[in-house]
């Protein structure tokens, strides 16, 4: 212990303390702060980059699943559309069929009616014609029959005979 105290040199202590504290202060300003800052910046930039990569990866995965969803949706939609179209077609066809058959029936019915009508008209006219013809024939026959007095007398006789008062 005595040796240590005897060895102690105040001048050396002073210079060492002075230079060392000066070194700490100088290096803090000119070296340690910029170095540590640069290192920290680099570390944080690496961290950021890693995080960004991770986020991009996550986004990609999301996008992929989104895409798949979209595809599925599109497929579903297409299927639905196709189905609808088919239904529509069927419906249209069916409708057309019913309409057509109804129309046809209607036409047929109308035709039938008009035929009936025409028939009736024709029958009526025929009847009229027959009546006129009958009257003309009767007129001619009568004229022939009743052209002589004998004949008129026979006819009256016949009619009288027929009108038997029984």
């Amino acid at each position: 212990m005595e040796k240590l105290i005897g060895e102690f040199s105040f001048g050396l202590f002073f210079w060492q303390l002075f230079l060392f504290v000066g070194l700490i202060l100088l290096l803090r300003k000119f070296a340690w702060k910029p170095i540590l800052k640069a290192v920290e910046e680099r570390e944080s930039s690496i961290e950021d980059a890693l995080e960004a990569a991770e986020a991009a990866k996550r986004q990609m995965a999301e996008l992929k699943s989104n895409n798949e969803d979209l595809m599925n949706k599109a497929r579903d939609e297409r299927d639905a559309m196709l189905k609808e179209a088919r239904e529509m077609k069927d419906k249209i066809v069916a409708e057309a069929k019913t309409t057509a058959s109804a129309q046809a029936e209607k036409i047929i019915a109308e035709a039938r009616e008009s035929i009936q009508h025409e028939k009736m008209a024709a029958i009526t006219e025929l009847k009229n014609q027959v009546a006129v013809l009958s009257i003309e024939i009767a007129e001619k026959i009568l004229k022939e029959e009743l052209s002589s007095a004998d004949k008129q007398k026979t006819l009256i006789d016949n009619v009288v005979k027929e009108i038997n008062l029984n």
């Binding site: 001048g11 210079w15 060492q16 070194l23 100088l26 290096l27 000119f30 070296a31």
Partner: peptide, 30 residues
């Protein structure tokens, strides 16, 4: 009272300068 620049002080000063310029250069390269 002795404040002499002894051999040890010279080397402390030398290390002072070496460290200052070495780490300053390093900081500048960043």
């Amino acid at each position: 009272l002795d404040f002499s620049i002894t051999k040890n002080v010279v080397f402390i000063l030398l290390v002072f300068l070496i460290m200052f310029f070495m780490f300053r250069g390093m900081a500048k390269s960043y």
